[in-house]
């Protein structure tokens, strides 16, 4: 196992690359998820168009 991690002496370079990849992908997925959460929350608070008019029966 430690031989695998050492990567023939290049462990630092190999694992830095793979770690950067993992971190970036993790952050991207997290940011899309959290953005979606806030957007859905905001959409819920927005009154749908069909009922936005205070006088829907043609008073406006």
């Amino acid at each position: 196992m430690s031989e695998f991690l050492a990567m023939g002496g290049y462990g630092f370079y190999v694992w830095s690359s793979y770690a950067a990849m993992a971190v970036v992908i993790g952050l991207e997925i997290r940011s899309v998820r959290s953005r979606r959460k806030t957007i859905v929350e905001e959409a819920r608070l927005t009154v749908p168009e069909a009922t936005t008019s205070l006088f829907p029966r043609g008073h406006a």
């Binding site: 979606r36 957007i39 927005t46 009154v47 749908p48 069909a50 936005t52």
Partner: peptide
Amino acid sequence: IDRERGAAWVGNL
């Protein structure tokens, strides 16, 4: 969802 916010189809999701 963000840009169509307020549209009926978003409200129905």
